[in-house]
Structures are given as C-alpha cells and as structure tokens.
C-alpha cells in the first residue's frame, strides 16, 4: 500500500471542483461536465489498485478525466460532421472577405495587447468568446490550444477528413476569436 492514497470517499470533496472546472473549460456544458466527473471518479474507484502512487492522486484522476473527454469528443464526432465542416469551410469567411479575397472588415489597431494578459477580466472575456464558438470549433480549441494535441491526433478524434481541412478550421476559429476579442475587449478598452 502506498501512503499517499486518500480514501475515495474524500475524492469528491478534495478534487470535485477542480475536476469540474477542468471539464467545463473543455466541454462548456454543465450536465455533461458533471457526468464526466462522476464517470471519472467511478473509473478511479475501479482502477484504484492500479494507481502507482508516484503521481499525485489529483494528476492521476485528471488524466482519467482527460481521456473521458477525448472519448466523448470522438464518439460524438463519428457521424454527420462532414457536412458541417464542409459548410463551415466554404461559407464562413464570406462575410469577412470580398470576392477578390480582400478584407471587408476593418482590422483595427490593438494598443499594448499584452497588458491584457495580466487582467482577470480579459480571461473572462476570452473564455466567453471560446464558449460562443460553434461546438466543432470549441472542441478544436480544447484539443489544440488547451491540451496541445498534435494535428494527426485532432483529425482522428474529431473525424476531420484532411489535414488541410483542419488548418482551415483552425484558421476560422482564430479569426472568430480575434473578432470576438476586438468587439468585446479591445474595442471597449478604447484600444
């Protein structure tokens, strides 16, 4: 027996909030995040004997949760995503660029953007912007920008047909986030 194990009955109090926040930052759906936390703790209970005890218990449980989230993304990406992606890829940029591919919108100046990184309010605005993304793109954000998965892994999990489509979708995602920050943060700051 390793000594740094705690009683599973205490997991919920010790790690429940942290696991819930971890899930919420990636799935943006309260009931789903709750279910994922529950599944994680149950899986942890079942696999408790295999916990080597060389990582912290929290890290171990977080690892299980991470797998559960990726599995959920994979399952829900199995069907009917191709049409959604194709539509997004062919139409989404129409309002931003004209027929000849020139900016239709103004790309305004942001003054001293890095100072924003020190402000809590900025992170709340960014989180809201991520939450406002279409589901495919917010999953893409979670896998790429939060968890740093490789391109191949992301294509496999989200069932994206080609790497080129992945790049286009990432480009759309960043454009949307850029515009959202421009509208709700830098515009307002008088940037």
């Amino acid at each position: 027996m390793t000594s740094n194990r705690s009683n599973p009955a205490e997991w919920l109090d010790q790690y429940g909030d942290a696991l819930y926040r971890f899930a919420m930052a990636r799935v943006h759906d309260e009931p789903l995040a709750e279910d994922l936390v529950q599944e994680t703790l149950l899986a942890g209970l079942k696999a408790r004997d295999r916990f080597a005890g060389n990582a912290s218990e929290k890290t171990w449980l977080t690892g299980i949760l991470k797998h559960k989230i990726v599995d959920y993304f994979r399952k829900s990406s199995r069907e009917t995503v191709q049409d959604v992606d194709d539509a997004m890829i062919s139409h989404a940029a129409d309002s931003v660029f004209d027929d000849r591919g020139r900016w239709r919108m103004d790309v305004g100046h942001w003054s001293r953007p890095d100072e924003s990184l020190e402000q809590d309010q900025f992170w709340r605005v960014l989180a809201d912007c991520v939450e406002g993304l279409p589901p495919r793109l917010s999953r893409l954000f979670a896998l790429r920008e939060i968890d740093g998965l490789s391109s191949d892994e992301i294509c496999e999990v989200l069932n994206i047909s080609t790497i080129n489509n992945l790049w286009v979708m990432l480009s759309r995602m960043r454009l949307r986030l850029r515009n959202c920050l421009d509208a709700h943060w830098f515009g307002k700051e008088g940037g």
Binding site: P8, A9, W11, L12, G16, D17, A18, L19, Y20, R21, F22, M24, A25, E30, E34, V37, Q38, L41, L42, L45, D120, W123, L126, A127, V130, I146
Partner: peptide, 24 residues
C-alpha cells in the same frame, strides 16, 4: 492553469450529492 478561464465555478451541490451516492 486553464482555471484562469473559469475561476469561480464549483461543482453544483445537487451533482455533488448524486455523485456521492453513485460512489457509495
């Protein structure tokens, strides 16, 4: 920490109870 993303969120009480029962 991605927690800077949602610093105040806590596992809702109802869910906590449900999970506690499931664990038991």
């Amino acid at each position: 920490d991605p927690e800077c993303f949602s610093p105040r969120e806590r596992l809702p009480e109802q869910a906590r109870e449900r999970i506690r029962r499931a664990l038991q």
